[in-house]
Design a protein around this nucleic acid. Structure first.
Length: 924
RNA sequence: AGCGAUGUAGCUCAGUUGGAUAGAGCGGGAGAUUGAGGCUCUUUAGGACACUGGUUCAAGUCCAGUCAUUGCUACCA
């Protein structure tokens, strides 16, 4: 029988499903291994060839680990709440639940064809009440907790109440709202229940806040900072503006230090860790107080370089700073008000586009440098951000690039405080060194000077050491319908949790998926939706990242109705051992997941802090777009090599029409868009071909360059697709998808098949002993393949397998003792063809439950070695020596050799280097 | 601007701790097969390993610098 992938693949996929080959049990003696992909959002467009890249890699790894004797958890599910389904619902009136379910079916059908070994009985969907019940439950745990800075752990709110009752809040070291008053135990104990409740709200790890949010009018929702790119929404690219709204917030800032410290123990790429470090943005510095000339106000600035305090020549306030009006002098009032107004109205986008432009105004007031009482002007400028530090910056033009630009522009004095920078045109190029012009700091080196300056400030109460983080609390509210309802209701204007026994709080039905006429979130349309028939529910829903922040825990115990996951199950499966997904989630999903997992650990719900032990980011698969050229104002198209002779317009066309050498199959074009191309004229090149140009860009609907894996499987086979996606290049690297090389992998599978069959395509393997050469090839390959899979180098494995099959074909290997291990070696990559060959060899159990072949070094050992003889580092000849030959004897023999003597020309070698089993080098 | 990654055949990539004449697949050339094309088979060409300098008996591999491409962050004081 010839290699017939269609029949084979359908047969085995059915068999695997019917016999539940991939079902995983929690109770076993085997060591566990947890391999996870970032679960997909089921979009309407279905999978394109970019999606499976990571899935195939994890699938191979999971299969490999299983064959190595591990109990492997390798599940798949769907992140099924989200914006596109809702956008579609707004347009068509279709309930998002319906379209989402349809999309999931499409995804599942596509994935099934690729032959993944997911345990489908563990599938989860974040939009199912049985799942989001626990998302809501976790929200409630976070609501009922505060963060103890002293222990660096979250605790239940009851422990905070106990402290308040005993000693008030003076000694409590916990993140809380800025307006939290100080009170004694006595004061606390005399407060009403409502007053106590209101105070506790200031400490909870999720809280309501009037905050300036990124409001996107086009999407009708609030976006988190990481959902915005260049001032536009990441989804859809709509403008974003700043707006004040009451929002649920997550106090992720409480975990800033933990999230930073824990990174050290994670096996993630440095790039992603760095992105998280940057996002958390820890800076160690000092707050320093500048009193005003009139002593009425104190301005506190944050700096990491207090050592440069003697170089301060002005202060700058953020345009949003409240004190501006109070300290603006009458003659500057107009200018300052105008500037502040202008700065506030500038969109995020404009600001970012004009980073280099300097702007600012003088307030007319002066402050005093606390270290030397020098009078310095106070300015307002938009290069100072209200949200970071104190919104006040001490301007040191000689040590900071931005301060330097500012001072130059407005002619403010520049005083150098670092030795060697005085003569420089731009003194900020030398930021570290010995201090000068700095009173008691003179002569000290930077680190020492910083320490001295901070000590001085603290001793004289001019300031205090402080650590700042860039990370902000995360906005948790979305003005949307298709998300988890926040399990909160309001009584006397205060938020209360829905009783745990009333969860899940089901998403109500509404007539339209838009905000109400009054501008309330869509859930405001559910007018009779009330808790206990009287209390209004929270109307915003949770953000996309809520459900995905804990899904990896649910897979351990997906059907549990009593808890989010039984602790025995989470203890057994524990952390994800290998997590694979795109780098675009570097700071969003990956940070929030870490936050929630750390939190659940603090409250004792799970026994580990970090969710993902090892993580790999697969590169993006880019597309190759096909571009053709249409004559201006005519329905005529010209081959790309001739386009310069005409006036043309460039058009994207479907890549399905693209064939070898960038030629276009015009018939395919006509089929694709008959209305455009059926009647069109084509101007062919001289050879009678019609050429297109190609360009590598993002896989996108708009460029018609998305390739559906179904089509690839239809034309070749699932095994070919799997092998080819791995062969494309290193997993972590971005690379363009192109069909150019896929024939090679398909041919490889046929070669593999032919190895097990004779010329008449009869299955033909024998039980004769194989020659040493065949053993050597096999075991060399086993070693390389094993090593490479272990270090996730999936592309090189394919190449090793190709070389191996080529060599065995050359040797006409037909022996069972070689070909039986070979098929096990290949099974993780191409499970279908492997299962078929395995069955043909007479096995009754699935190959995917077999053992991975073990490398036996014995087959690689040889008694002699053929040394390359190099003279002055250049190889000139070869000689074979037994491994037992002593070095002296080798040396003598080599020097006496005729070929060597020809090159040494009678000279006495200065040195002769013999590296056993490697090389012999003669230096003249 | 900062941080990271990459630079090897026309293209996509291997080349593990320095050690031989640097390898795979695709693509190109030639041939066999065919009425012709495709598939298949045989065969072949193609490489200052980005550049410069250093370490070494020996550098694609280690070190320093330069250049190019690319990703992320971006006024964070």
């Amino acid at each position: 029988m010839e290699y017939n992938p269609k029949a084979i693949e359908a047969k085995w996929q059915k068999y695997w499903q019917e016999n539940q080959i991939y079902k995983v049990e929690n109770d076993t003696e085997k060591p566990k291994f947890y391999v996870l992909d970032m679960f997909p959002y089921p979009s309407g467009a279905g999978l394109h060839v970019g999606h499976p890249l990571g899935y195939i890699a994890t699938d191979i790894f999971a299969r490999y680990k299983k064959m190595k004797g591990y109990n492997v958890l390798h599940p798949m599910g769907f992140d099924s709440f989200g914006l596109p389904a809702e956008q579609y619902a707004i347009e068509t009136g279709q309930h998002p639940a319906i379209t989402t379910a349809q999309n999931i079916e499409t995804f599942k059908a596509q994935m099934a064809k690729i032959g993944f070994n997911h345990d489908l009985t563990r599938e989860i969907r974040t939009s199912e009440p049985a799942y989001y019940q626990w998302t809501q439950w976790i929200f409630q745990q976070i609501f009922n907790a505060w963060f103890n800075n002293t222990t660096q752990k979250a605790e239940r709110i009851e422990t905070l109440i106990a402290i308040f009752e005993k000693e008030g809040n003076l000694q409590v070291n916990a993140p809380c709202d800025e307006d939290t008053p100080v009170f004694t135990a006595n004061e606390w104990n005399h407060k009403s229940e409502d007053e106590k409740y209101a105070l506790l709200l200031k400490y909870r790890l999720t809280y309501l806040a009037d905050s300036i949010v990124n409001w996107c009018p086009a999407l009708g929702t609030v976006l988190a900072n990481d959902e915005i790119k260049d001032g536009l929404s990441e989804r859809g690219g709509h403008p974003v503006e700043r707006k004040k709204m009451k929002q649920w917030m997550m106090r992720i800032t409480a975990y800033a230090e933990r999230l930073l410290q824990n990174l050290e123990h994670l096996d993630w790429s440095e790039a992603i860790k760095d992105m998280q470090r940057n996002w958390i943005g820890k800076s160690i510095g000092c707050e320093v107080n500048f009193s005003l000339e009139n002593k009425k106000h104190i301005l506190t600035a944050f700096t990491t370089r207090l050592d440069t305090i003697f170089g301060v020549s002005y202060l700058v306030l953020a345009p949003e700073h409240e004190v501006i009006a109070a300290l603006t002098t009458p003659d500057q009032k107009d200018t300052v008000e105008k500037y502040v107004q202008w700065a506030k109205n500038r969109s995020e986008r404009e600001r970012q586009a004009e980073v280099k432009t300097v702007s600012g105004v003088f307030t007319g007031s002066y402050a005093l440098n606390p270290f030397n009482q020098e009078k310095i002007p106070i300015w307002v400028a938009d290069y100072v951000l209200a949200g970071y530090g104190t919104g006040v910056v001490m301007g040191v033009p000689s040590s900071d690039d931005r301060d330097f630009r500012f001072a130059k522009h407005f002619n403010l004095p520049i005083r150098c405080v670092i030795e060697g920078s005085e003569a420089m045109e731009n003194p900020t190029e030398k930021k570290y060194g010995k201090m000068i012009n700095s009173d008691f700091l003179n002569g000290l080196d930077t680190p020492e000077a910083i320490q001295k300056a901070v000590e001085f400030a603290e001793k004289n109460q001019l300031g205090k050491a402080k650590i700042n983080y860039k990370i902000r609390d995360a906005v948790f509210s979305r003005q949307r319908y298709w998300g988890e309802p926040v399990p909160v209701y309001f009584k006397n204007n205060m938020p209360y949790l829905v009783d745990e026994k009333d969860l899940p709080l089901i998403l109500p039905e509404i007539d339209e998926y838009k905000p109400t006429a009054e501008g309330e979130a869509p859930l405001g349309r559910a007018t009779s939706w009330k808790y206990k028939d009287q209390y209004a529910y929270e109307l915003t829903t949770m953000p996309g990242w809520a459900g995905s922040s804990w899904y990896f825990l649910r897979y351990a115990d997906p059907k549990n109705e009593q808890t989010f996951a039984d602790k025995n199950a989470t203890n057994y499966w524990n952390q994800v051992d290998l997590y694979v997904g795109g780098a675009e989630h570097a700071v969003g999903h990956l940070l929030y997941s870490r936050f929630w997992t750390n939190f659940l650990h603090d409250l004792g719900h799970i026994d580990f802090q970090e969710p993902f032990k090892k993580m790999i980011n697969q590169g993006m698969i880019q597309g190759e777009s096909a571009l053709i050229y249409r004559l201006k104002n005519e329905n005529t198209y010209v081959s790309a090599d001739l386009k310069d002779q005409y006036e043309t317009t460039e058009l994207h066309v479907t890549v399905k029409a693209l064939e070898a050498n960038n030629t276009i199959n015009t018939e395919e074009l006509k089929q694709w868009r008959p209305e455009d191309y059926q009647e069109a004229k084509f101007i062919y090149s001289d050879e009678g071909k019609f050429y297109a140009n190609t360009r590598v860009e993002k896989l996108s609907k708009r460029y018609y360059n998305a390739v559906n894996p179904d089509d690839v499987i239809e034309k070749y086979s699932a095994d070919t697709l799997r092998l080819y996606e791995m062969f494309l290049g290193p997993l972590e690297q971005s690379k363009p998808w192109s069909m150019q090389g896929i024939d090679g992998t398909y041919r490889f599978l046929k070669k593999l098949w032919n190895l097990y069959h004779d010329e008449k395509q009869d299955f033909a393997i024998n039980n004769e002993p194989a020659p040493a050469e065949a053993h050597k090839i096999l075991h060399q390959t086993i070693k390389k393949v094993t090593d490479d899979i272990e270090r996730l180098s999936f592309n090189t494995v394919v190449s090793h397998l190709m070389i191996c099959v080529n060599k065995l074909t050359e040797l006409k290997t037909k022996q069972f003792e070689i070909l039986e291990p070979l098929v096990r070696l290949i099974a993780p990559y191409t499970p279908h063809i492997a299962e078929e060959l395995w069955a043909k060899m007479g096995h009754v159990n699935s190959i995917h439950h077999a053992q991975f072949p073990e490398y036996n070094p014995q087959y690689l050992q040889e008694s002699s070695y053929e040394y390359p003889i190099s003279i002055n580092g250049k190889t000139r000849t070869k000689m074979t020596f037994s491994n037992e030959t002593p070095a002296q004897e080798i040396e003598a023999t080599v020097l006496a050799d005729a070929a060597v003597m020809k090159w040494t020309e009678g000279k006495t070698p200065k040195k002769i280097i013999i590296v056993p089993k490697k090389i012999i080098n003669i230096v003249l």
